[in-house]
Amino acid sequence: MFFLRGEKLKIIVFPGCMVLARFHEYEMASTMILKQLGYEIIELPEFCCCGASLMPGVTDNWINLSAHTLALAEKYGAEIVTLCGSCTGNFRRTNHYLSRDPEVRDRTRSALDKLDLSYEGDVKVRHIIEVLIDRQEDIRKRVRRHLKFKVAVTCPCQILRPKEISGTITHQDLQIMLESLGVQTVVYPQQYECCGATALLFDEQFGIDKGMSKLESARTHGADVFCTSCGNCLYQMDRYQNKMYQNNPGCKIPVFSLPQLIGLLFGYSKESLHLEYPEVLNFG
């Protein structure tokens, strides 16, 4: 990563609907870490859903929703950094279709025209995990704290698949980076399984079972903390634990986002990162 003549790289942090509405601590930790790594954060003048996993099943015009945000990013000369796997996938899919399908391109151009916007299709889209992996050397220089707890990590499915639109990282890269930063990670059988969060929309119990099965896989293989960085995955693995463990609350496991974990490594207080787990965060 190079900064030309000290110029900061401009980014738009796109939280996605779920993080925007429910995971303020994740969004806040993300902006803190990205600023510390030297990025200039550009605020979007208006937020519009990327289309989520739902709108493509409703209308071809879902692409216009994400193209609208991409066009704004292009206008401000900024990259997009997403906090949700689903948004990453949708923005990249939009770039993919716009670059290959003239019919889609014409349709989107016509819609953006009416809003006095245009989009050439060149905005880079990365998920925050990918950004932090790219910047791991700079992160390492800032590590100030050793963490005693063991972490189970996972990556959002849509930043890894389908391969035609995915980035360059593999599922293992996040774990390798955290180990190199001194974080103890665990290997667990369901590490590469989907958390099943989207199932909560069509079959709640099935979704809960899938999420709990993954959490249990992590917990029984030694994890003190579960780390995920996606709105849907956080919703499933964190907020649904009350339902998963309603008869066994002692088995609940703290869930951190990657920027919160990096924030702890940087020496930020647990209060400033809005983490509320005194047992694992007893730094002595």
């Binding site: 996993s53 499915c157 849509q158 989907c194 989207t198 199932a199 069509f202």
Partner: peptide, 13 residues
């Protein structure tokens, strides 16, 4: 069940 999908895209893989 066209909506019964968790969007993991392992099928495509």
């Amino acid at each position: 069940g066209a909506w019964h999908c968790v969007n993991c895209w392992k099928c495509i893989e």
